[in-house]
Structures are given as C-alpha cells and as structure tokens.
Design a protein around this nucleic acid. Structure first.
Length: 324
DNA sequence: CGCTGTCAAGACGAA
DNA sequence: TTCGTCTTGACAGCG
C-alpha cells in the first residue's frame, strides 16, 4: 500500500498580508462602549472580517495545492462569553460562513478546529465543564453554518491531572456521557506534552470510539525514551470508522532548554524519519505542520523535500514516499 | 510608529 | 487561599 502524505498548516499565513482570521475585541473593551447596539455591530464586523479572511487564506492555500487547514477558533469574538448568552452570533455572519464552507467543499479541502487548551472536559468544576461544552457547541454551530459535515473536525486534549491521573482519566469518560451526541461526533483526541501520553489517549479513544490525533512533538516531550511504533497500529485503528483520513501533528522543539515550545520551522531529518516509519501502514496521512512560521514552514519543508529523490510528488503539497 | 503592558482562558505549583 | 506563571496572538496605551 502506498501512503499519500498531505501537508497542512495552522490558522494564519505569514505570506498573505493584512489577513488576520483572529481579530478580536476583549470584554473590557466591549464594556467601555456605551451604546450596546453599536458594540454588537462592531463585534459582527470583526467576525465577518475574520471569516472572509479565512476564505482568502483558503484561496491562497489552493494556489499552493494545500487542501488541509486548521481554522482559527477565534472567528467570532466573545461568542461564548456568558454575558452575551442571548446573542445569536451565527445569524449575522450566515452568508460569510456559507461562502467559506462552500469554497472548502467545492475544492475538497479538509478544514478543522483545535480550540485552546481551556476546553477541559475532565474538569471537576461544574462551571468550567459547562463553559467547555459551550465552546464546543460554538465550534459545532460554526461548522453547521458552513454547511460542512461536523464529524471529526475538532481536536481537544484529555485535560488536567487534578492530583490523580487515573481518576481524571475516568472523569473524562464520565463527563463524555454528559455531552450531546452531535458534539461527541465532532471530537478527536490528542496526546499532550505533560500528562496524558499515547497509552492514556488510546485507552479513552478505544473505549469511547474517538479518533486519535498523534502529536510526535508532544510524545517526545512527555515520553522521550519510549518508542511509539508499537502503538501506531492502534492509533490508525481509531480512524477506521471515520470519514476522514488519519491526522497527525508535527512540530519541532525550539531548543533543548525550551523543548515544549514550537520552533520556527520543521526539522527535515525528524520529519523524514517519522514518515518513513509510518509509510505503507495506511492509505493517507494528513500532516498538520505546527510551526511558528506557519505556511512559510510548510513551504520550506517542501523545498527541502524536493532535493530528496525518494519523494514522488502528487501535487505541490502532497506526496508519496518510495520505499527503499 | 514601535515598544511595553494587558487581555482572555484554566491548570498548577509556590507562598 | 491567594498569587504568579505558563501560553498565545492581538489589542491598548504610552512616549
């Protein structure tokens, strides 16, 4: 079996200027605006700009054969703020969302989300859990607004340790039962760099039938000495019931001292070593490049890969790896 | 215009 | 129990 490797990147471009998809308004600024109607209009303007800028980014991606992209989770500022609970934050940006979604569908692009680490489903605090669910519902509404199938489009982590890792793992399982089925179907789980390593995430993913996103950098930060090769077959099995291809996260450590931080670019040696190990195990692997230099890191990686004669290009940003 | 401080969020360890 | 730190990109305000 030949494996198609497809490259993608995160949320924003360093090449396309004046194209932020994450412009925002803080709550303290919002409160300082005396006229609430004009404050709401301003919020909607920012949201429209963020969404149309995301569409511009998809067009930029298409020009470079990039069909895999993580949208910013900050498209609509203050959407999940509890003092704005009554605000129908979707209705004002319906047209923009539909346009974004239809462009992605038309060009068969994989788009997804990865909310900040504040979405913690295994928290023992009721209000934190409630807020996490609200944020997930927000992502679900965005996807429905785009008229994109929400299944397996939102990556989150297992959450905090709270003293006992075992209990916190089980609390995730318990809390999972408390969230709506439609939200469950949207979620994928990723190993983190401090607490929950591959085995923990696999345990939960297999138990609850959730696809697992493997993050090689997190694995090295968390379990530097342990080989992940044995678990890879289990990881790809978690995707067997998914309409989407296997997805992984790739980033390189900034330095030994700041190991957990993302470097500007991707280390080509590490990348090649990684894809060689998984080549031939599955039909397609989508590789999310998580580097400070965003799309420029993707471009540099493809430039470096071009000098390698084992790479057979499918297009400018996807390829096969010839086995030796 | 560019720099510094602040904003959001939740976890977590120190005091 | 409270506070500072971590993390991130962007805003706000200062000189």
């Amino acid at each position: 079996m030949q494996t198609l490797f497809r490259l993608g990147y995160v949320a924003m471009s360093v090449h396309v200027k004046n194209c932020s998809p994450s412009q925002t308004m803080t709550y303290s600024t919002f409160q300082k605006i005396p006229d609430k109607d004009s404050a709401m209009i301003r919020l909607e303007q920012i949201a429209k700009s963020n969404i149309t800028n995301s569409l511009r980014l998809l067009k930029h991606n298409r020009a470079h054969d990039i069909y895999f992209f993580r949208l910013s989770s900050r498209l609509i500022p203050l959407a999940t703020h509890e003092d704005l609970r009554d605000w129908n934050y979707i209705s004002g940006v319906k047209r923009e969302l539909e346009e974004l979604g239809s462009y992605a569908k038309k060009h068969e692009m994989r788009i997804d989300f990865h909310p900040d680490h504040f979405v913690v489903l295994n928290t023992p605090k009721k209000d934190v859990f409630k807020q996490a669910v609200q944020t997930l519902i927000y992502h679900h509404r965005l996807l429905r607004g785009m008229k994109v199938d929400p299944v397996h489009r939102c990556v989150i982590h297992l959450g905090g340790k709270y003293g006992s890792k075992e209990e916190s793992l089980e609390r995730f399982v318990d809390n999972w039962g408390k969230i709506p089925n439609a939200i469950q179907k949207m979620i994928m789980l990723e190993n983190d760099d401090k607490t929950f390593h591959i085995d923990d995430v696999l345990y939960v993913c297999e138990k609850l039938n959730i696809p697992m996103v493997f993050d090689i950098h997190h694995h090295l930060a968390n379990q530097r000495t342990k080989n992940w090769g044995n678990q890879w077959n289990r990881i790809i099995k978690t995707w067997s019931g998914s309409p989407r291809p296997v997805k992984i996260h790739i980033s390189s450590p900034k330095s030994n001292k700041q190991f957990r931080h993302h470097a500007d670019y991707i280390d080509i040696g590490q990348f090649l070593n990684f894809i060689q190990q998984i080549n031939g195990t599955v039909k397609q692997v989508d590789c999310m490049i998580e580097a400070k230099k965003k799309d420029d890191a993707l471009f540099r990686l493809t430039e470096e890969l071009r000098t390698n004669n084992m790479i057979k290009w499918n297009n400018k940003a996807s390829f096969y790896l010839e086995s030796v």
